[in-house]
Design a protein around this nucleic acid. Sequence first.
DNA 1: TTGTACGCGTTATCAC
DNA 2: GTGATAACGCGTACAA
Lengths: 325, 325
Amino acid sequence: MATIHDVALKAGVSVTTVSRVLNNRGYISEMTRTKVSGAMEELGYQPNEIARSLLRKQSNLFGLIIPNVSHPFFSQLADRVEYYAYLEGYKVLLCNSQMDPDKERDYIDMLKRNRVDGIIMGSHTLEVEEYRSLNSPIVTIDRKIHNNIPYISSDNYRGGQLAAELLVAKGCRKIAHICGNLELQMLSNQRTDAFLDVTIKHGVERLVVETGLNVFDENKYEKLLGQLLQEHPDIDGIFATSDILGAYAIKESLKAGKRIPEDIRIVGYDDVGASRWVRPELTTIRQPIDALGKMAIKLLRMQMDDELVAFENILPVELIERATT
Amino acid sequence: MATIHDVALKAGVSVTTVSRVLNNRGYISEMTRTKVSGAMEELGYQPNEIARSLLRKQSNLFGLIIPNVSHPFFSQLADRVEYYAYLEGYKVLLCNSQMDPDKERDYIDMLKRNRVDGIIMGSHTLEVEEYRSLNSPIVTIDRKIHNNIPYISSDNYRGGQLAAELLVAKGCRKIAHICGNLELQMLSNQRTDAFLDVTIKHGVERLVVETGLNVFDENKYEKLLGQLLQEHPDIDGIFATSDILGAYAIKESLKAGKRIPEDIRIVGYDDVGASRWVRPELTTIRQPIDALGKMAIKLLRMQMDDELVAFENILPVELIERATT
DNA sequence: TTGTACGCGTTATCAC
DNA sequence: GTGATAACGCGTACAA
């Protein structure tokens, strides 16, 4: 691979001159410029970004840590993060923590060693202490891990409220809420808070079921829902904390011989593709994934520019009513 | 951020010595070692990988170019690629081409400028010529773009054959095949070849429908399927080229008042989550996504080590029979 | 308008 | 055992 020296040699000028035409800085005669451009072309020269990064102390690299890209919510988030990063000239390093603390710690160290310009954390399995050593710009998605690390989240409480109120308004008298692990300090737990508040307020019977630590094992989902419906045949409403869970809720309800929405009403969360692939189509709470990704990049950029960023960044959710309610 | 010099200063030794304990090279007295380690600890020192990369001429970085991570197949592929890359100490740069030639070209140049150690191409919108300038190790997924760039693929012909033969064996007399754009030179077109061969051989009426260029617009899917079933009410079998298309086929069939599998049988492709979220569960052809990702990393590593790699790498597919057939 | 020389943070080579 | 120094490829004062 050709270096700036090779280009200089071929064009019969110094490396400085080559650097100048490369970066359009200072004065260069038109003739030298074409001569240099020609040499670059001929050699297929591409400036070495590694050397540039070293000099500039800036890598133009962002790290994206998430539990797992294969989960629809995170895959969409990754898509949007990449999209907005690209627009600003940044690259994205994909880091799946797999909810494994060792791997997450490893990745955080790796990102530090690679001098990334910012980190987006959509996963956190470590103790708070371990994040404090990070001195690069950082922003978390859906988790408040430290009181000076800004976070982005959609309005989880509002989402839970919208879902629960809809079910209540439709006349449900016994509603089950399926959520992740409440011990993880995640903002999505507020959906559960809202669910409890609403159902208590209206005197509706309620049930909260946690899927357990590994939120991504789908075989578990199926069993969980089947068992729930068997033990509580009088459930007439389900608020699931993801569209995938919602999809399984639909499947198991139908399997149990229930009609949707006549016998049981179901609300999902996220509004990812799955909500439209199933039948009946799933009523859900839409998370503003595009805005989430955009905001993540924006907050990193602001921190890099030493601008003041808000600690709390909450984006609105929206109820998307379809056929399951 | 502390450098090796700071550590050396603090430990009262030379940078060489620090480098030595860092890389466990040469002889160092136990005392110096602990002294240096202590200094590193205190300063929270992390070696600068950018400087290392510059010197070693190796970035430990792979580029993954795909149309879109938000598509389930690619999100799973990305997950596995990241998994195996991590095991070998490599990082993954996420590049969504969005099927946009300009962006893809941009990303290819960017990967070159960043001196990535290898590129995995799951997208190709450019002319063959534009890929030839790539002199880093490269491997493509599901596409043969040049006769000296190794490719990985699952056995598309076999997949199409399994699907078509199953439908025929179950008694379908008029089968529709929904595929992407056949003009793109993709190996998945072999599914269509197999479909045609099988249906012709058995004298079964057939229909091939292309979804058009932008394979990822789901609103189109819905209309397409609805229209197809309306214009050809006698279709009794559908072979869809993805599980998402399969899911829409199920939805539109039920909407048209057909029973599955009594009136119409449906086979999807990929075996991603969607095939289990729908009801009835979708019969599908499983792509070995994990093996695909593993092989991609392996082939890159082999090229880096100047080992001989096979040009053609075809992995077996598997028929997963569920409830739609 | 162009060239020389230094530094970015590491590691390899050769001295001591 | 340990230290000085050159080199990786580039950008930028400063000099010419």
